[in-house]
Design a protein around this nucleic acid. Sequence first.
DNA 1: GAACAATATTTGCATTTGCAAATGAAAGTC
DNA 2: GACTTTCATTTGCAAATGCAAATATTGTTC
Lengths: 160, 160
Amino acid sequence: MYQLTNSLPYLLNRVGVRMGELFSRRIAGYDVTLPMYRVMAALWEQGDQRLGDLAGMTSIEMSTLSRLIGTMKRKGLVSRTRLKDNARTVAINLTAKGKSLVEELIPIAVHFETVAVREFTTKGVTDLKTTLAEIYVSLGTLEPEIAEAEAQRRASKRQA
Amino acid sequence: MYQLTNSLPYLLNRVGVRMGELFSRRIAGYDVTLPMYRVMAALWEQGDQRLGDLAGMTSIEMSTLSRLIGTMKRKGLVSRTRLKDNARTVAINLTAKGKSLVEELIPIAVHFETVAVREFTTKGVTDLKTTLAEIYVSLGTLEPEIAEAEAQRRASKRQA
DNA sequence: GAACAATATTTGCATTTGCAAATGAAAGTC
DNA sequence: GACTTTCATTTGCAAATGCAAATATTGTTC
């Protein structure tokens, strides 16, 4: 007998949402939203990214990210520069202000993680992370069957 | 040296977003969104829920859920009835149509989970689920310090 | 039992989101 | 070198979201 509340997607989503919501509230005083933090932390780890790369890294949809980068630029947190050699791409970077802000926030994120995994051993934590990464990869397997479902959907829509 | 991409929140969010996005696309042909599926699956597990309970169970914010239930009612998937004995609460239930639809979708969700954890042993999977549930609980510990951050925020706002 | 506090849900409003189409720029192709 | 194709990003538009305020109902206190 299936139970939503014992399913992996449910448990994952629940903990993800909760953590995000708590972290959002925690950093609201810095005038940053959670997506902004994600962008800054991603750029802190790897600067000079193109929009598409950053979208992949942050799991933020590209059009959403494009606009988000716009508001972050207005806030002086990031820079967006069209490249001279390939002007259809754009290089996104942290500004000094963005860098120093994210360096204030990262310790808070670290603290959150520490609290979250307080009950587990170091090995338990690395195993968990490996597991999560492996699941992410396994999900790729689903693409073909989803593409087929979508193709059928498009076909029946053309009909109508 | 901190790395966003090796942090627990990042890994959790990433796999959650991916799975959600794939599942959304998979079920789009049934004219259901992911949040709708979540509501139906929650009601399938436990019917006759009040809005607040359902919000807690699905991790959907209450005002969002209120409106979502509205559109689902219009689609004939759920019923919403004010109680006679306590008319400030509302009882939400699946309709026959909603029930049969969710019973079509659950096997798809089960399949997704199967694929996601294909690499792991049964024990590995139960352990993972237990871990996720424990982390969820641990996060509660953070509430007090967040409340304090929010209080300070409110105080400085009153100033301004 | 009238006034006030507490609880549950809904709504107003501004912002965010995401798909699909549009734009801008570089790469073939002939 | 004008042409279509492909690639990367942005924008139009309608829908979804979330906070805070409003509403509706019950509970409490005097």
